[in-house]
Design a protein around this nucleic acid. Structure first.
Lengths: 119, 119
DNA sequence: AAAATAGGTTACAAAAAAGTAACTGGTTGC
DNA sequence: GCAACCAGTTACTTTTTTGTAACCTATTTT
């Protein structure tokens, strides 16, 4: 009935062989690249920069807010770069960075894996 | 700045070139492999099956509930297999499936990417 | 002048994920 | 016979993520 508080008897406690208290590299990588839409956005930018509303249309399903949140996060993580072009009606372009490009192989592998296993 | 290719330019094209209404393979793959702890769990199982509480200790940080939820989901997705060994004090082992194994290359690539870029 | 476009922002609601603590029911070792 | 182990389950609560809709400033087309 009573709660089992942690007694001083450590002798019988089993220890983990290799506990990972910190998120491991896999977890950390997933946080950067695994967010919803992140992969898709990067994929859409791989050939050329894309403008905000075009991206919104291409990713039919992501709202402007979500898209905007994600773009900001991706910019912070240096996966993409936001560029304002001061033409008469100003335009904004999002383009993939060199760093962002380093994730493409990996995303392609994921894409192939998904298709291969009909996920 | 170089080339500035707008694929939908200042021409009034209000249609997306290739809208993806369905989640694309990258998104779908992420849903299977990208959940919190999923990658780590698979990684811990790659060499040999591991028992529930050992896994819990190794992944110091995941509660039993979360671990259990994740294991069930991973079993549903056929990434792992739950096996009950009916010894006197019964034991439960989680082991990676052949399918789960197909994701390891990809996870290793992610791990290397994270380490390489100090993520 | 009205409507539509660009590139967002804001306030709020809903849903999903994650975490906490207690509890179960059986077993083993002391 | 009590504590600790195994492998969870249950009942919540908290946090995070995601989505909806309206709004904004400025320009441009009809």
């Amino acid at each position: 009935m009573g709660k089992m508080e942690f007694h001083t008897d450590i002798t019988r406690q089993r220890k983990a062989l290799d506990p990972c208290f910190e998120p491991c590299p896999i977890e950390r990588g997933m946080r950067v690249i695994g967010g919803k839409w992140t992969g898709s956005i990067l994929w859409h930018l791989k050939d050329h920069p894309v403008r905000f509303n075009d991206l919104a249309r291409q990713l039919g399903g992501a709202s402007k807010k979500v898209l905007n949140d994600r773009l900001k996060q991706m910019e912070e993580n240096k996966l993409i770069k936001r560029e304002v072009i001061s033409t008469k009606p100003f335009a904004v372009c999002y383009e993939i960075t060199d760093f962002g490009r380093t994730a493409l192989d990996f995303l392609e592998a994921l894409k192939d894996w998904s298709l291969e296993h009909r996920i």
